[in-house]
Design a protein around this nucleic acid. Structure first.
Lengths: 204, 204
DNA sequence: CTATCTATACCAACCGGTCAGTATAGGTTA
DNA sequence: TAACCTATACTGACCGGTTGGTATAGATAG
């Protein structure tokens, strides 16, 4: 018989938890609600995770890994599409526009922002992960911007670190506006503005 | 004895609740923690609010009122400082930069974003308030931008509604990055970028 | 007298977490 | 080939504590 040894219950817990946390928040997402959603019992949950906070740690780690992997992937694709640093960065942002345009999720959101607004409930390891990811984006995009600035001097003096941060800022802010107004289109629009800001700044 | 005739207990509940919610989230902020923080009893809390959710409703309403009142105040001041629509808008953003520069709060945050990421716990009235405030900002800034665009034609075709949204986006996004990285300076930097984008776009 | 509380006690529902036990598959040994 | 052992992946009942909320009696102050 088809042995269901490959149950991947752990992953299903993580998936369900993420979805529930994104709409209700972490504290309001009880272990009971998660296990009901997955269709398992409490014992199974605590077999995979020592505590609920242990799950939070795994969840944010998993989310961060996916996020940074996609950053890598899109960066590689963007550089393949254009060898000019500014153009490839604009293409990179375009790839994210494509991605969010195809978003079907009824209740989109970012786990980083969700956790950040309930930070009092998490240990330093979880909080450090949030910081790490934001810094990783900052450094990656700032390096890119420095290359772009070398090739296309900006028309105004500009701090490239905060300009790099602005991409994260636009992402996180767009999530809030998109959710509150229930209009997912906000996302692509805001990325488009960021892109246009770069074009004007570097005279593309 | 010095009885607390100077009661305004209701406001103190709201203040304490806001502070606690901003660090722990709504669900994790129990009524017990609030009353301990204020220094009152449970009876007093439920004398002022029928339910915890009733308090949430009052809190977001109060927050929205303050937010929109400040929007009005800063807009008036900005128009007083410059009669040119574009310049006054830039001054308006500058006033917000001033405000956030003087922020002493150890854990800054926006109640709208906090509630938005726990939306599953609130009724439609609360959620509608979030939407209302965002739409109010959009319309107010978009009108301003239309005046600015009439006087200073944008160097590129641009959607003014989403450009107006971008101010809210930058605010909300900056909160997330500032909190996660524990660097309140993010705020003024990001507003500066938004300002510079407008300058480039309208050729100021 | 009314508004605004304090103090104490209580409730049912739910919370995160524990525990003993079960089912099953795959070695290892005699 | 049967007996035994181990590891993995659970089930389902249960625990003490916390939750939002109620009830009631009384104090204080204008």
């Amino acid at each position: 018989m088809a042995t269901r040894t490959r149950t991947n219950t752990r992953e299903r817990i993580l998936e369900t938890a993420e979805r529930l946390i994104l709409t209700n928040g972490y504290a309001a997402t009880s272990v009971d609600r998660i296990i009901t959603g997955v269709g398992i019992t409490k014992g199974a949950f605590f077999y995979h995770f020592k505590t609920k906070n242990d799950m939070a740690r795994a969840l944010i780690r998993h989310y961060a890994d996916l996020d940074l992997a996609r950053l890598d992937e899109y960066a590689t694709r963007a550089w393949a599409l254009s060898s000019d640093p500014l153009q490839s960065l604009l293409v990179f942002i375009g790839l994210y526009q494509e991605m969010v345009a195809g978003m079907t999720d009824e209740n989109p959101g970012c786990l980083f922002a969700s956790f950040c607004y309930e930070s009092g409930q998490f240990d330093d390891e979880v909080l450090q992960t949030l910081d790490d990811v934001i810094i990783a984006w900052r450094e990656r995009i700032a390096d890119w911007l420095r290359e772009a600035a070398a090739a296309h001097p900006p028309v105004r003096p500009v701090d490239l670190d905060s300009l790099a941060d602005m991409l994260t800022v636009v992402f996180e802010g767009a999530f809030v506006v998109a959710r509150s107004t229930r209009s997912p289109g906000v996302f692509a629009e805001q990325l488009q503005h960021y892109r246009q800001y770069l074009e004007l700044l570097f005279d593309a």
